[in-house]
Write a protein that binds this DNA or RNA. Structure first.
Length: 676
DNA sequence: TAGGGTTTT
């Protein structure tokens, strides 16, 4: 049983919250006299890495030269050094015997990169491929690339990946890394997942809504494939947490295998007590480490926000230039946050060159499952801001509420119905959402005319079937499918695409007023949606020019993203014979069309000057970033309500009461809307 | 007059 460890004790469960290792507290060069008051914890919840020391660069590994041979030897050596390696035989034995196996192993154990390779080495992927899900795009892409490199094949051949807008596969692809959302979408057209012999659901402990739904889908597919006497679907659930009973029970008491240890220990540092200036203190810690640790011992710092990260990255780079530091390793300082272009995000995975030190300044994007090569030190300074003592830190909630228990289920239910799952109430969720939240979602879908109740059974309408084809919330797909009726498919495609991404506005601190002035030319009294459309049209007119975006304080990346989403939505329209018509300058048509899908998001001006949302009867205010701020239209359609101290309507359009009666007469009669 | 962060189809 070499390599496997006994099931963990309760105590270990708590300590493993952050994928931590059980390594002993070790002597550290920064143990004494750490400048910024940072303290070494004994729950080392840092990140390890399977890709450490001497990991290869991207180039020169596929030419059959001496360097390449050396490189391949190195890879074999690294693979054999992974904690999972000694478990290989036993693991394969269990995988052969069992239909479903749960594998518990920390980040750094090698489970994500190795298990699929083991399966391939046994040729267990002859009949159907291996699909490995990841909650995040960067993870899917970077792991696929690493595995292709280990197998000495070109990415996109035997090993590929598939994430939204980026597919790198070929007919010969046997081993595919995908985002969980991608596999879920695939399941709508193929609920039996018939392309695959193996489905591996990785990072299951994160409990994303997609992974949670996939649990039920793979279980169902296993059952149905058996009934139809098709090849078995083998399932591996991989998780980093030790709290595994839940998974095992759910998968019919599936076998649980534990992989012990991580490859390299990581030092975890965090504030001993509240720091007045935690940023300064973090920086001071960085340089303390820098002066004492060998090159290639990389540092990861957690901070709270983008602005902070940019400024700290800049400061560290400045300080690093100082002559007094000339004798120490060169520093490569890299920011990391979600809004960064993915090429820059992938930069952090590049292995540190000899004589160099990588310092990554990150939001909590890197906190969960991303494995960054070379990290030896983690400075968790941001937490100091809200002042945790070690005890408080340890007492923080171990298992946060799964996403599925706190989300609107309309999309999920629409998707399940589209897969042919008849009874939502009996769907095998690992954690069943409350009947109230299911009821609420069904009500929304009913109002949108996506579903009807027939003989006590929920059924998709033709409209609902089309709605399920869109990678959108049902109310957004309803807007698009209403396009032809209002003569504005072209316009709603653009607006919905923009609503699907992040904000297109850039408001640099200190230049907020200037930004607002420059963008004034796009403003429309009709509201934010029309304003956004004007911007989108102007952006296309500029030939998607980066400089133009910069001058107008607009986010080029997010506008490009909207273009991509729009292209995809347009394709779905074409497949579903949705006519593409334009309303040109008739912005009333656009607003009425928005109401056709978003009529549950209406607020009415009251006599006291306040707004009341008609659906939930909540008091709400116009968000200060809205073009309607300061005005008092009788009715407002909002895209979402954001609760930050106050309830705010975010991204809004002024509405005419008449339109509301037109789009949803029944609904508004019940809501006692004031007659004109 | 708001403003923690993150993810995905």
């Amino acid at each position: 049983m070499a390599g496997f460890q006994e099931p963990p004790t309760k105590k270990q469960k708590t300590e493993n919250r952050f994928l931590g290792s059980h390594m002993p507290v070790q002597q550290s060069p920064i143990r004494n006299g750490v400048g910024g008051g940072f303290n070494k914890g004994n729950n080392n919840h840092g990140k390890g890495s399977p890709f450490q020391k001497n990991a290869p660069g991207q180039n020169g590994f596929m030419n059959g030269n001496a360097k390449n041979t050396e490189h391949l030897k190195n890879i074999v050596k690294q693979r054999h050094a992974l904690p999972i390696f000694p478990t290989r035989a036993r693991l394969l034995e269990e995988l052969k015997k069992n239909e479903t196996v749960i594998v518990i192993g920390e980040t750094g154990s090698g489970k994500t990169t190795q298990i699929p390779q083991y399966l391939h080495e046994e040729r267990w992927d002859k009949k159907g491929g291996i699909c490995v899900t990841q909650p995040r795009r960067v993870a899917a892409i970077s792991v696929a690339k690493r595995v292709a490199e280990e197998m000495n094949v070109q990415i996109g051949g035997l090993v590929g990946y598939s994430v939204r807008f980026e597919e790198c596969v070929s007919p010969g692809t046997k081993l595919k890394y995908v985002t969980d959302g991608m596999l879920l979408r695939e399941a709508i057209s193929d609920p039996l997942l018939s392309k695959y012999n193996w489905v591996i659901l990785d990072e299951a402990h994160e409990r994303t809504i997609s992974t949670d739904v996939l649990f039920g889908i793979v279980k169902d597919a296993q059952k149905k494939r058996k009934q139809l006497e098709k090849d078995n679907l083998k399932v591996i659930v991989m998780s980093a947490t030790m709290d595994v009973d839940h998974f095992s029970q759910y998968f019919n008491k599936a076998k649980v295998l534990y992989i012990e240890g991580r490859q390299h220990p990581v030092e975890m540092l965090y504030a001993r007590e509240k720091q007045d200036d935690y940023v300064l203190s973090a920086m001071s810690t960085v340089f303390q480490i820098h002066k004492e640790a060998p090159a290639q011992h990389d540092i990861l710092i957690f901070l709270t926000g983008q602005e902070e990260i940019d400024s700290v990255t800049h400061s560290i780079r400045q300080v690093a230039k100082d002559n007094s530091l000339a004798e120490f390793p060169r520093m490569r300082v890299l920011p990391l946050y979600a809004a960064l272009p993915s090429t820059q995000q992938l930069d952090v995975f590049r292995v540190t060159a000899p004589g160099e030190r990588k310092v990554i300044v990150s939001t909590n994007i890197a906190e969960t499952s991303i494995t960054i090569p070379g990290i030896k030190y983690v400075i968790d300074s941001g937490r100091a801001k809200i002042s945790y003592t070690l005890e408080e830190f340890n007492a923080m909630e171990v298992n946060p509420v799964p996403e599925i228990l706190r989300s609107n289920l309309a999309s999920v239910i629409l998707q399940l119905l589209a897969m042919g799952i008849k009874n939502i109430l009996t769907f095998d969720f690992i954690d069943k959402p409350s009947p109230a939240s299911i009821k609420q979602a069904v009500e929304q879908l009913t109002l949108l005319e996506a579903v009807v109740m027939k003989a006590g059974q929920l059924e998709l309408t033709d409209l609902g079937k089309k709605m399920a084809q869109f990678p959108l919330e049902p109310r957004y797909s309803k807007v698009i499918l209403s396009g032809p009726q209002y003569g504005c498919t072209d316009e709603v495609l653009s607006v919905i695409a923009m609503l699907s991404g992040e904000s297109i506005y850039v408001n640099p601190s200190g230049k907020k007023e200037m930004a607002a002035n420059v963008r004034r030319k796009f403003l429309s009294v009709e509201g934010d949606h029309v304003t956004m459309l004007k911007i989108f049209r102007a952006f296309r007119g500029s030939k998607e020019n980066k400089m133009w975006c910069h001058e107008n304080f607009l986010n080029h990346r997010n506008l490009k993203y909207a273009l991509e989403v729009r292209k995809q939505l347009h394709q779905v329209c074409q497949r579903n014979n949705v006519t593409l018509v334009s309303c040109n300058q008739d912005m009333d048509a656009l607003r009425r069309c928005l109401a056709a899908g978003l009529f549950t998001n209406i607020a009415e001006l009251q006599l006291d000057g306040k707004y009341l949302s008609l659906d939930t009867r909540q008091e709400c205010s116009i968000h200060p970033t809205s073009v309607l701020f300061g005005g008092k239209p009788a009715y407002i359609l909002f895209t979402e309500l954001v609760h930050t101290g106050k309830m705010y309507m975010h991204i809004n359009s002024a509405m005419d009461a008449q339109w509301l009666f037109e789009v949803a007469p029944e609904y508004f009669r019940k809501r006692h809307i004031k007659k004109m």
